[in-house]
């Protein structure tokens, strides 16, 4: 660990921006630099995944006094324009992770963020596996590929802090409040397993609007569901620290 005693991470997901709320969210970001060192966006930034909405998201989060790192969510993929939306965000100075990592220096400390959209499949003992019809195999294979990418990216990181940013959930605990029947569409334990194998300080996700904010992986890594309807506030702030000085 380096000299930094605290790292303040602001995070929110599922802002689902549209014309009717343009500028409203931005107003809530005033003063973010006094509260946090970085802002992480956990996907579902748009409603329908259109270019126009992507542009709106870019404008809403551009030129902030703190770095902004984002992943996309399933809504942002709906129109098959996810790569165009990623470009739109990048053009506005936002770092977008698509199963990769980024390193940001915050007041002398190095923060590594690994992430991407994630995907579903369910949780240990009650999940789909790569067996049977091609469609089911493809479904699970997609999640497994993502988990493998994150594990590799985490392993390669040599930073003071490591945070994983996802849209889908890696654990069940932060889904509590959602109907049990849809858990397999809300996340996958493969994501948690990958992160637990390498280690990280925190996992952030969205997607489950009716879920709970706080959970933990089987390996003891803290998980926070930062979906806007769950938080009920502009963003959550999580301080990673070796001391209590935050």
């Amino acid at each position: 660990m380096s000299i930094l005693t605290e790292l303040r991470i602001a995070a929110v997901g599922d802002v689902h921006l549209g014309d009717d709320v343009q500028g409203k969210y931005r107003a809530r970001l005033t003063g973010i630099e006094d509260r946090a060192d970085v802002l992480l966006l956990a996907g579902d930034l748009t409603r329908h995944g259109t270019i126009a909405e992507g542009r709106l998201v870019g404008q809403e989060f551009r030129d902030l006094p703190v770095p902004v790192v984002a992943v996309l969510g399933n809504h942002d993929y709906h129109s098959d324009l996810q790569y165009e939306i990623m470009s739109e965000l990048r053009d506005n100075g936002i770092i977008v992770l698509d199963d990769e990592s980024a390193v940001i220096t915050c007041r002398g400390a190095r923060l590594g963020v690994v992430g991407g959209k994630g995907f579903g499949g369910g949780f240990a003992g009650k999940c789909a596996s790569e067996f049977g019809e091609r469609e089911i195999k493809n479904f699970v294979h997609h999640t497994r590929g993502i988990a493998d990418s994150w594990q590799r990216a985490l392993k390669e990181l040599d930073t003071d802090y490591k945070v994983v940013l996802s849209h889908y959930s890696p654990v069940k605990e932060t889904l509590e409040g959602e109907p049990l029947e849809i858990y397999p569409f809300l996340g996958s334990y493969l994501l948690a397993e990958a992160v637990d194998t390498v280690g990280a300080d925190l996992i952030l996700h969205g997607h489950a609007h009716k879920g709970a904010e706080k959970g933990m992986t089987p390996g003891g890594i803290r998980v926070r569901n930062v979906a806007l309807p769950v938080l009920g506030r502009a963003y959550g702030i999580y301080c990673l620290s070796e001391s209590d000085s935050c």
Partner: peptide, 13 residues
């Protein structure tokens, strides 16, 4: 959804 002001920090140590 009501977007209130950000609340208290959570300390994870």
């Amino acid at each position: 959804v009501q977007v209130r002001e950000p609340g208290e920090d959570e300390h994870l140590d």
